[in-house]
Design a protein around this nucleic acid. Sequence first.
DNA 1: GCAGTTAGTAACAATTGTGAAACAGCAAAT
DNA 2: ATTTGCTGTTTCACAATTGTTACTAACTGC
Lengths: 226, 226
Amino acid sequence: MRVLLVEDEENIREVVKLNLEMENYEVVTAIDGKMALKHFREQHFDVVLLDVMLPEIDGFQVCEQIRLTDMKTPVMMLTAKDAVGDRVTGLKKGADDYLTKPFNLEELLLRVNNLLKRSSQSPKNSPEMYEFGGHKVNFATFEAEGNNGTFTLTKKEAMLLKLLVDRKNEVVSRQQILQSVWGYDVYPSTRTIDNFILSFRKYFEENPKKPTRFLSIRGVGYKFVG
Amino acid sequence: MRVLLVEDEENIREVVKLNLEMENYEVVTAIDGKMALKHFREQHFDVVLLDVMLPEIDGFQVCEQIRLTDMKTPVMMLTAKDAVGDRVTGLKKGADDYLTKPFNLEELLLRVNNLLKRSSQSPKNSPEMYEFGGHKVNFATFEAEGNNGTFTLTKKEAMLLKLLVDRKNEVVSRQQILQSVWGYDVYPSTRTIDNFILSFRKYFEENPKKPTRFLSIRGVGYKFVG
DNA sequence: GCAGTTAGTAACAATTGTGAAACAGCAAAT
DNA sequence: ATTTGCTGTTTCACAATTGTTACTAACTGC
C-alpha cells in the first residue's frame, strides 16, 4: 500500500511517515504542491495525505488537479485551521476525508485504514487463475490459452498482464507500468511496453488491429477491459 | 438511497432529516439505540447516521452491534464532545466517519455523499460518468456521446471538460483554466483554450454558433451550464 | 458609428505518442 | 564454434494531439 504524504513541516512529515511505515505502508513524501503533483503523475498511490497550507500551490488546488485525471484515489486533507468553510471547500474539491491539526496519530492511522479498506474492496482479490472472453491465464504457471491454443507467457509478460488484470477497467499509466514491472529508474522513454501490449493483442484479441480488451488511452497509458 | 438517522434531539433530527430529504434521500429516523437496531435489522439502509449520546444504548454500542452482522454499510458517528478519545473509539468500533456537533449541514451532506459514493461499489459502476442534455461523458475512459455518436476525448479535452463540469454554472477564468489544466509554469497562447471550447461546442451543442452550454463570459472566461 | 479590445475560426506547425519492425542479448541445441 | 530460437529493447516512420498564427467577427465604451 503506497501513500503520498504532502506536508511542508518537517517534524510532522517525519513523524507521520514513520508511523505509516510502521504499519507497513510505503510512503513517498512531497514538501510542496508542485512535487506532490509531479509524484502523483508519475507513480501509483493508494491514498494521498494532503496538507492544505503549502507553499505556492495550496492543498485545495492540488486536490482539484488530482481529481481532474483521477477520481478514484482517496485524498485526505490535513489542516491547521478548524474552519468549517475550509472543510466544506476541501470536500467539494473532491477530498474524501478531512482531519484537523493537531491530530491524533491513532485517529489518522485509523482513518487512512478506513479509506483504504473502502476503496480497495473490489479489486483486492488476485487469484492465480483469470478468465476473460474464452481465454484463460494461469499466473502461477504462466500458462495461457489464447487464439492459437495453449502457450507459456514469459516472466515480464506475466507481470505486465497481471498488473493490467489487477487494475482492470482502469487506466494504468506507462510510468506506473515501468515502476511496477521494470523497477524504478528505467528512464529512457521506451517502446518496450507497446510491444508487450502488441503481443497480448495477438494472443488474445479477436482482431488485433481493433483491440477491444487491451486499449490504448493516448497520452495516458493502457487499460485492460475485463 | 436510504438513510437511517439516529438522534434523540428532536430539532437536530428534523433539520437533518429535512435536508437529507431535499437531496432525495429516503430517511428513517430512530430516537434511541433500541429503535435504531430494530430498524436496522428489519430494513436495508445505505448509510447510518448515528448520534453517540443516546438514551439507554449509546452510539458506540449500536455501531458495534451493527458491525456484528454487517461490515459493509457505512456508519457515520455524530457527537457533541470533541474528545479525540471518543473519535478513536468510534473509528475502532467500526464507524467509517466522524463528525462533531455542532456540525455544518453542508459538510454533513457532503460527507454522506462521500460515504455513499465510496460504498456503492457495483463492479461496472463508473462514478465518473456525467450526463447533460442527452449527452454522456465518461471521465474514466474518455468516452463521450456527442452529436455525432460516440467518440473518444483526448487527455486535455477530458481535463478541461472535467474542470468546467466540476465548476458547472460558475465562471472559470482563463487564468484558472490555464493553471489547472496546463500547470503552473507552462502557458500556451490564450487562443488555445478557445480551440478546445470550439471542439466542445461542435461535439455537444445543438447549434455550435449559438452555444447554450459552453458560454463565453467576455473578459473573464468560460462557464458550463449543466 | 468608431476605435480598441476580446473571442471565434480555421489552417497550419510543432510536439508528442504509438505501432511495427529491425535489432541485440543470451542460452540451449547442434 | 556456430546456429537457432526466444526474450526483450531500440529505432523509426507515421499518426494524433496540442499549440500558434493570422485573420474575422463581435462586443465595449465612448
